[in-house]
Amino acid sequence: MTSQRLLRFAVLAGTACAAMALAMPAASAVDLAPGVWCDGAECVNDNDEAYVVYGTLTCVVMHTEPWTDMTKPAPLPTQSIEYQRWSIVLAPHGTGTARTSGCFGGVDIDWDISGAYPQSRPPTGSAG
Rank of each mutant, 00 (worst) to 15 (best):
T2M: 10
T2P: 01
S3D: 14
Q4N: 14
Q4F: 07
L6E: 14
L6W: 08
L6I: 14
L7P: 02
F9T: 10
A10S: 14
G14L: 15
T15W: 10
A16I: 01
C17M: 11
A18F: 13
M20E: 14
A21V: 10
L22W: 10
A23L: 10
A23V: 02
A26T: 10
A27C: 09
A27F: 06
A27V: 15
S28P: 00
S28L: 15
A29T: 14
A29F: 09
D31M: 12
L32Q: 04
A33W: 11
G35N: 11
G35W: 08
G35A: 12
V36I: 05
W37L: 00
W37H: 03
W37V: 01
D39I: 01
A41G: 12
A41V: 11
V44S: 09
V44M: 06
N45A: 08
N45Q: 06
N45H: 06
N45W: 02
D46K: 08
N47H: 12
E49C: 07
A50P: 09
V53Y: 10
Y54D: 00
G55T: 06
T56N: 01
L57A: 00
V60G: 00
P66V: 08
P66D: 10
P66G: 04
M70P: 10
M70I: 15
K72E: 15
K72W: 09
P73G: 03
L76R: 14
L76V: 11
P77H: 03
P77C: 07
P77Y: 02
Q79G: 13
Q79F: 12
E82R: 15
Y83E: 04
Y83D: 01
R85A: 06
R85D: 12
R85H: 07
R85W: 08
R85Y: 02
W86P: 00
S87P: 01
S87I: 03
V89P: 06
V89Y: 06
L90H: 02
L90Q: 12
H93P: 02
H93N: 14
A98N: 08
A98M: 03
R99F: 07
T100W: 05
T100D: 10
T100K: 10
T100P: 09
S101A: 07
C103N: 02
C103H: 05
G105I: 00
G105L: 13
V107N: 04
V107Q: 12
D108A: 04
I113R: 03
S114A: 15
A116I: 12
Y117A: 07
Y117L: 00
Y117N: 04
Q119L: 14
Q119H: 11
R121F: 01
P122C: 13
T124L: 06
T124S: 15
G125I: 02
G125T: 04
A127N: 13
G128P: 02
G128V: 04
